[in-house]
Write a protein that binds this DNA or RNA. Structure first.
Lengths: 222, 222
DNA sequence: AGGCTAGTGACAGCCACTGACAATTGACAA
DNA sequence: TTGTCAATTGTCAGTGGCTGTCACTAGCCT
């Protein structure tokens, strides 16, 4: 069952039966309970038993929905990622790669917020980033997931440009640069006082503007 | 005891007593046993008990030397990181940041190889990168460690330029970009056939050359 | 030589995670 | 409606990473 959620949703969605609805409810309850406990008490100090108890299921059931404690933590993040990948796919092919990534992100925010809200309060999701940044185990998992996401996007970019990712390093390089900036932003934003989506959005745009000047390196001429 | 290795070595190294030498030997034996087992059998399929048995100590003793199985895996990598940081510190301040990083890395390779050899065969260390890339848990840990390293280096760069990392995002951005390229290189190199230091060195230089052209984005004009 | 202390092993226990089996409970046809 | 089948769940037992505790041994220092 793990991983077979609606990420692999059928094209023609038949009205889900009771069984399916119940499953979704359980899953969402688990995710929400997990995020609430994590943000209140911390990731490490929350046991899977705690989460299961809060959702009123057995520990074994928790692991039938999520392959690991970590996976539950990032379930919501996954929704956001899919949105972004789709946005990149939808960009007109004549845009330069870095531009396309940038605009895709800019136009994704609202859709992401909406998708997140369908499972947990947006605010909870945003506050959870602070937990990620301050928990080594979670940060590690987050970075690995980001790397995987970058790989997916690099393939999309390569396809747009008619290149082979395994021959030409440029797609991976641009995407890596883009991802690096986004992560620096997340980090700075998460320790800053304003945990709002608007603040994240603006900080991202601002930092992306810094890439060119930062690389040319005449920092002392301003 | 964990973490108090010679990273925090005394300035005037008094001739180490028997106790100290024995400790170092035990630690190195553990590291070597761990890397050998990891590369032969895989990380997950090697238990801490296996490593401890191979080094002829108890499991408890293993955990007195290393806070986690993961830490033993990255002990050698830590040596390499320190060398690099020092090399960055040693670069003349008039160099542009990205240049300084690049040259620091270029001049570090030999010293790193030497430092590694003092603990395990260089070849073993290099082959271990394949294990890292193909083991999710290790990759996650590796990425987190890289992020920490980048933070340290960002501070060095900021200092060189007389900037405050918490105010000006540029130091973190350059370093992140540099780190991203290095990681893309590691990844491609680790799946490629040639697991030699020379190959890694060349691939790194080549990929760093790609940053500028990849960002400007006129990919179809060549 | 003898006390001091760092290093070690043995043991017990917590927590993430997994396999196996039995009990429930939706789904669907008779 | 009812009976059957399959999906979902709970219980139980076990593995592996990791930690606290305690007694014991072995370098070190006077």
């Amino acid at each position: 069952m793990v991983g077979t959620a609606e990420t692999t949703a059928a094209p023609a969605a038949a009205p889900p039966g009771l069984r399916e609805r119940k499953k979704r409810r359980t899953r969402d309850t688990l995710v929400r309970a997990a995020l609430e406990l994590f943000t209140e008490r911390g990731y490490e100090r929350t046991t899977v038993d705690d989460i299961a108890a809060a959702a009123d299921v057995s520990q074994r059931t928790f692991f039938r929905y999520f392959a690991s404690k970590e996976e539950a933590a990032f379930f919501v993040g996954r929704l956001a990622e899919s949105r972004f990948v789709e946005a990149v796919r939808g960009r007109p092919p004549e845009e330069a790669p870095l531009d396309a990534l940038r605009r895709a992100l800019a136009e994704s925010w609202d859709g992401i917020a909406e998708a997140v809200e369908r499972v947990v309060p947006l605010d909870l999701h945003l506050r959870f980033y602070q937990v990620i940044e301050s928990t080594p185990a979670l940060l590690a998992a987050h970075l690995r997931r980001s790397a995987e996401l970058e790989e997916r996007i690099a393939r999309v970019v390569a396809e747009r440009e008619g290149l082979d990712v395994d021959t030409d390093p440029r797609p991976r390089v641009v995407v890596a640069v883009f991802g690096a900036v986004v992560r620096v932003t997340e980090r700075i934003w998460s320790v800053g006082g304003d945990a709002s989506l608007a603040a994240l959005r603006e900080a991202t745009a601002a930092h992306l503007d810094q890439v060119e000047p930062a690389l040319t390196g005449d920092w002392r001429t301003d």
